[in-house]
Simulated assay, not measured.
Amino acid sequence: MFKGVKDKVIVVTGGTGVLGSTMTRALASKGAKVAVLGRNLDKANTLADEINKSGGIAIGISADVCDKEALVTAHAKINKKLGPVDILINGAGGNHPDGTTSQEFYSEENQKDARTFFDMELDGMDHVFRLNFMGTFLPTQVFAKDMIGRKDCSILNISSVSAVLPLTKVPAYSAAKAAISNFTQWMSVYFAKEGIRVNALVPGFFLTEQNRTLLTNTDGSLTDRGNKILSQTPMERFGDPEDLVSTLLWLCDPASRFVTGTTVAVDGGFCAYNGV
């Protein structure tokens, strides 16, 4: 029996991004009280205002997911304005150029101006791990305290197909997202006695602000990498942000009360396809 998320207080980190804003709007449209948490307060407030004008309930909150003090301050504001947190969506994440290689394969030849594994900087690797892993760990540590001793609470992390099948060129991002999937399972066991469910979404390839230039050219045609990805996606298309909504709502709904510690792929079959 679906109860929905009406009147649930839900925090969405990374809530102003392409995928995050779609999830935020979807949750608000179902009656949730949503805190849009992002580094840019103007963007968070703009989205919250849009939701409020359409009859929903939302507030914009500025905080860096890697800054615990900022999260504690955000937590106090959310509690004061909306109440204790019922559901946390850990949507913040991303990559960094210094955590990537410029070529798919290492070769002694043609290494001029290339960024190889040996050129990758610690700062870039650290940035990617902090944003993706610590940016999930710290918000959970702060907001999950509200869930202790209460019913129908849950945490939803955002993993990636690169956690399942490590993608070329993005070793830091792939490893960090693999850590998210592992951490999801660990937390699901740790919080099981409290009835707090912990799951993860595994989005396939969606055109976002971060990857649009990697997958498409300025004229809208596909890059070589974009073509390669679609050739490995049985449904032969990129995802639309709306494709995440039904799975998002199901995992947040108490109807999935026996579902915890799982990662659900919304990827057009990418993770299921072995290329032949």
Rank of each mutant, 00 (worst) to 15 (best):
102 S>I: 09
169 K>Q: 15
65 V>F: 03
118 F>Q: 14
104 E>G: 12
70 A>D: 09
166 P>C: 05
72 V>I: 15
149 G>D: 06
163 A>S: 03
129 F>R: 06
125 M>H: 04
71 L>H: 11
65 V>L: 05
82 L>F: 13
107 S>R: 05
161 V>Y: 06
109 E>V: 13
96 H>D: 04
155 I>P: 00
162 S>Y: 10
156 L>I: 04
96 H>A: 01
164 V>W: 09
138 L>H: 09
68 K>E: 11
105 F>H: 14
170 V>I: 07
151 K>H: 02
130 R>E: 09
131 L>F: 00
70 A>H: 07
96 H>V: 01
132 N>V: 00
85 V>R: 01
108 E>K: 12
100 T>C: 03
143 F>C: 04
81 K>Q: 15
119 D>Y: 04
111 Q>V: 12
138 L>D: 06
124 G>L: 00
103 Q>V: 14
115 R>N: 05
161 V>P: 09
153 C>R: 03
169 K>F: 07
154 S>P: 08
106 Y>W: 15
148 I>A: 08
148 I>P: 10
135 G>Y: 01
101 T>K: 12
145 K>V: 10
158 I>M: 13
169 K>P: 08
82 L>C: 11
134 M>Y: 04
116 T>N: 11
128 V>N: 02
71 L>A: 11
144 A>R: 10
94 G>R: 04
104 E>C: 05
165 L>S: 13
154 S>I: 03
75 H>V: 12
144 A>W: 09
144 A>Y: 08
120 M>F: 07
166 P>E: 04
88 L>R: 06
104 E>W: 12
77 K>Q: 15
141 Q>N: 14
138 L>G: 06
105 F>R: 14
